[in-house]
């Protein structure tokens, strides 16, 4: 239990000292799978709550149309493909991180998003369209910060230099897209196959 607290405290350390934070995460075992899962769950809840509590002006959808499962998919699918893509790409490019390290690191990189999304969505409730630039400014800061942590994570977990880091990040993103396209094609073809078998069955059963 005490360990878990230390692991979760590391999230705050990563906010203040990202480079050191990720280094410790990897080489001093300051994170565990459980703490990573807790952070992921928090990221999901943050997304869900911000969807609900953001002002109608900045998120003009009805609360009853928010589908928690869809939000779960929106959060988890990109994250999972990122972990997979980054691990696979870096493991053939002399990256030192293991799959577990990439998973834990990628969960910790979401910390600024977890911390600041809900406050921003609450702040949006006192803003009007005229002040949307304030909202968008902080919104982009959160995204930029999170993106920056992902780059630091690649560098520290796999022990790359900065040029390699950027190259591997770009490759990982491209590989993510490739995974999605392949999955889409696969899904499309499977639907066709199922459809074909169904029709074949009908055809035979009517004869």
């Amino acid at each position: 239990m005490g360990e878990l607290v230390i692991h979760l405290k590391q999230a705050i350390r990563i906010l203040r000292h990202p480079v050191d934070g990720f280094w410790e995460l990897r080489y001093e075992k300051r994170g565990s799978l459980i703490s990573a899962l807790i952070l992921l769950l928090l990221a999901y809840l943050a997304t869900l709550i911000s969807e609900i509590s953001t002002s109608f002006i900045f998120n003009p959808i009805e609360i009853k149309f928010i589908n928690p499962w869809l939000v779960l998919a929106q959060v988890s699918i990109p994250w999972l493909t990122w972990v997979l893509a980054n691990y696979l790409v870096s493991s053939i490019n002399r990256g030192q991180g293991r799959l577990l390290d990439v998973m834990i690191g990628s969960a910790y990189a979401l910390v600024p998003y977890i911390f600041f999304t809900i406050p921003l969505s609450l702040v949006s409730n006192v803003l009007t369209i005229g002040e949307s630039s304030i909202y968008m400014f902080f919104h982009y800061i959160i995204i930029g910060w999170t993106g920056f942590l992902f780059i630091v994570l690649v560098q520290e977990i796999h022990n790359y230099d900065i040029g390699e880091t950027i190259w591997i990040t770009v490759l990982s993103v491209l590989f993510m897209l490739a995974i999605w396209i392949l999955l889409l094609i696969f899904a499309g073809l499977s639907v066709q196959l199922v459809d074909f078998i169904e029709q074949l069955y009908e055809e035979v059963s009517f004869r």
Partner: peptide, 17 residues
């Protein structure tokens, strides 16, 4: 009301048709 919506939204899945 919104907090009640949070709880409801977590438990109720599916888009209302």
């Amino acid at each position: 009301n919104w907090f009640r919506f949070v709880i409801a939204a977590v438990f109720i899945a599916g888009i209302g048709f």
